[in-house]
Design a protein around this nucleic acid. Structure first.
Lengths: 231, 231
DNA sequence: GCAAAAGTGTTATCTGTACACCCATGA
DNA sequence: TCATGGGTGTACAGATAACACTTTTGC
C-alpha cells in the first residue's frame, strides 16, 4: 500500500500512552503506579504506560496497556491531554497521550495489580515519578476536580452500593475541604439520582449507614431535560 | 546516537497538529479555515494543520503551522486534545493533536490570511470539513464555552480597547443566549479587573460607549487571593 | 449506659434574575 | 426633535451556608 505523496518524507514519531489511575480506599484517594522495568530509569516509579501500536487507536492503547499491566478491565477512562515536548522522555523523543482512569479498588484487582508489580499509594505518599509523570498527575488531579464538579464520575470510585457518609468522604478527599453533612445530604438527595436500598453498612458504626445505588437511567433521563449534576 | 533497547522495534507514527482558530468580528464568532491544497481531499475545506517535525514540540508545531499558513503570530493557543483513531485521516494513519486559538481579527491578519488562501467564516456558515475536523470544531466550541466561563479568555478575541456592550455581545455569541445588560455590567465591573478609559467608541451609537481595557496585573493579583473570574 | 457515627430542620445571607426609564448625540 | 444605542437601581426568589441535637446499637 503506497501513501499519497503528501505523507512521504514526513518524520514519524514514537507515540506512547500513560495512565493516571485513581482509586478510593480507606477514605483516601490513591494512585496506581509501578516500578519501571526498562531502561532508562529502570526501577524508578512511573505511571503505567506503553507504546501505541501500528493499528490501534490511542484510546485502545490506553485500555490495552492498563489491562496488560494490571489485569484491570472495563473502567472509566478519559483522555487527559497530549504531552509533546521533545525532551520529556530521556530515552528518545516520545510523544505521550495521557489518560486518567477511575477504579473501584477490589481485592481481585489488588491481587492482579500486585502480581504485575503495580502498587496503590495514597496521593500524599506518591514519590517523585519519572520524566513529566508528576506533572501529568497534577494535571490529572486538576481535571478530576473540574470534571467531578459537574459530572457524576465520583461514583466510578465507589463500590456499587455506598453510603452517603462514604460519598461525602470521597468528595471531601477530592476537593480537600470539609463538606457540611446536612447540606451535602440535602443537595445530593434532592437531585433524585440515588436509589435508596434496604441495606446498611455497619462497618463504620454501630448504628449503620443506609446504602444507596447511583441510578444511571434516572440520571440520563434528567440530563435530557436540562438537569446538571453539581457538587 | 543509538536508542535504548526499549525503544527499538516500536512502531512510529505520523503526528499532525490541527488548529481551530476562533475570531470575533461584526458581532459574530468566526472560524479560520482553508481549502486543502494536497491529496487526498484536495480542494475540500479543512482546519489549518501540518505535521510535527523531528525536533519540535507539538505546541511549537501548532504555532509554526499557524504562522506559516496565515502569518499570524503571538496569540492565545491551548491544546484541545489528541485524536488518535486509526482511520481518522483517509490518506494514512495520522495521529493529530488539536489546538484551539483565539484571535483579534485585524486587517493586517486578514490580508495575510487571504494571501494564504485562508478564510474567516461565521460559525453558522461553516461547510462540512474533512476527516474528523467538524468533530474537532464542535469539541473546541464546547471547550471554549467551558473555559470562557471561568477564565478571562474572552478578551483575547476583542481589541485591546473595548466597550461593555461589545464584551457582552461576545459572551452572548459564545453562549448563544441573551445576557441582561444591567446584570452583566454590574457583575463584570464588580470584579474590578477592567480599567475604564477616557475614550468612547462612537462606531455603534451617537452617544458612544465608554472603552475599557482588561487589567492583567490586577487580575493576576486577585487570582492569587482566591478570586475566580466567572461569567 | 456509653461511645461513636448516622441522621435530621431552620434561619440568615448571598447570589441570580427580572425589569423600565433617562441620557447623550448625530442626523 | 427624534431615533438609536448607552447607561443606571431596585425588589424578589432561589440557593447556599451556618449551625446542634437526637437516634441507633455494639460493646
Amino acid at each position: 500500500m503506497s501513501l499519497p505523496s503528501f505523507y512521504v518524507n514526513v518524520p514519524r514519531h514514537l507515540v506512547a500512552v500513560d495512565c493516571i489511575i485513581f482509586g478510593f480506599e480507606d477514605g483516601k484517594l490513591k494512585l496506581l503506579i509501578i516500578k519501571r522495568k526498562v531502561d532508562p530509569m529502570e526501577g524508578a516509579w512511573s505511571l503505567v504506560g506503553g507504546f501505541v501500536q501500528e493499528k490501534e487507536s490511542t484510546d485502545h492503547a490506553a485500555t490495552r496497556v492498563l489491562q496488560q499491566t494490571t489485569g484491570i478491565q472495563d473502567i472509566y477512562m478519559d483522555q487527559l491531554q497530549c504531552y509533546g515536548e521533545t525532551d520529556r522522555d530521556t530515552g528518545a523523543r516520545v510523544i505521550s497521550v495521557a489518560y486518567y482512569a477511575l477504579i473501584r479498588i477490589s481485592e481481585h484487582d489488588r491481587m492482579l495489580a500486585n502480581a504485575h508489580g503495580a502498587h496503590w499509594l495514597a496521593l500524599h505518599q506518591i514519590p517523585e515519578l519519572i520524566f513529566d509523570h508528576s506533572r501529568m498527575l497534577s494535571d490529572a488531579l486538576a481535571r478530576l476536580r473540574d470534571k467531578a464538579r459537574f459530572h457524576p464520575i465520583g461514583f466510578e470510585l465507589l463500590p456499587e452500593k455506598f453510603s452517603l457518609p462514604q460519598l461525602r468522604n470521597l468528595y471531601e478527599e477530592i476537593y480537600q475541604r470539609p463538606l457540611d453533612k446536612r447540606n451535602f445530604r440535602k443537595k445530593i438527595l434532592a437531585m433524585d439520582i440515588l436509589e435508596k436500598l434496604d441495606e446498611k453498612d455497619k462497618s463504620t458504626s454501630k448504628k449503620g449507614a443506609n446504602l444507596y445505588r447511583f441510578d444511571k437511567k434516572k440520571y440520563a433521563a434528567l440530563t435530557q431535560h436540562g438537569f446538571v449534576f453539581e457538587i
